[in-house]
Write a protein that binds this DNA or RNA. Sequence first.
DNA 1: CTAATCTTGACTAATTCACTAGGTTATTCG
DNA 2: CGAATAACCTAGTGAATTAGTCAAGATTAG
Lengths: 158, 158
Amino acid sequence: MRLTTKGRYAVTAMLDLALHKSQGPISLSDISSRQAISLSYLEQLFSKLRKSELVSSVRGPGGGYELKRGSDEIYIAQIIDAVDESVDTTKCQGAGDCQGGETCLTHYLWEDLSEQIHAFLESISLADLVAKNEVKKIADNQDRRQIIVTEMSAALAL
Amino acid sequence: MRLTTKGRYAVTAMLDLALHKSQGPISLSDISSRQAISLSYLEQLFSKLRKSELVSSVRGPGGGYELKRGSDEIYIAQIIDAVDESVDTTKCQGAGDCQGGETCLTHYLWEDLSEQIHAFLESISLADLVAKNEVKKIADNQDRRQIIVTEMSAALAL
DNA sequence: CTAATCTTGACTAATTCACTAGGTTATTCG
DNA sequence: CGAATAACCTAGTGAATTAGTCAAGATTAG
């Protein structure tokens, strides 16, 4: 699991789609001006998002991109995985003397942590983020923290 | 909150220190050979870790680095923050027309998510990771997932 | 059919990452 | 004392990632 600006751009753009899904296909230039992301970079990102079946494209005038599924069926982890193809984090895949040795121990500890974050992001949908934003406007910080706890717990109970 | 290989290297190295803290100061060349991280890169990372008061150094023969606090008082987020100096994720800091507008909305949604991950990593100490590894050897996947839930909940209850 | 709109893909520049190489300074041991 | 050890510091390099440019293709409106 990697968490970089590329993934943030992708999630931001997908959020923009979710917020405007009632308006039919959204062109990338709309997203570009609204979210301050360069058009060409968006094009690259959406190429990957399309290959991952997260969005569908409509060409020609009035065209653009739409969420392929409902915003409650698209999870943050899927978006990040789509644009941020993960390299192998182990680095010691059968590389000689690292068979359950100490080296693999620490690698495994990190991977486990990474898995937990991934599981968390797999449990949050675009709709969740949008919905939480509504709540946030009223709730103060303490209430918000409580919401986070509830969500995280619920998320991992599966 | 960014999650890159740089942070992973730092956490891995700190875990190595935690696992060998009974042996006095640990030299970087030891960590380098055990964890397969280049020595000079470790030096750069530990320079930052030292400035962040996470480790202390002992020079000369037999010297090396030690955890400055107990491994139960050093949290993953601190390590990552130390080496991975975060750039401003907003990009629209008072930049004209982005005053609570739609642009800031999506930025804020992402930042909130990022905060949650940070809060999570702030709640996991080096000792936690080491301890969990002991448990893992016996526990099956379902048990592990329960542990995760407990940890995440406890983490955010503050 | 033609023009406008929007996707698609190939190509390029800038930045960051991971690492290397070289040295200097502090400390211990023979 | 002097040689070995190891932290420290600075600069530089290659590759990957990030971000942006440009020129095609596809599709619809008029």
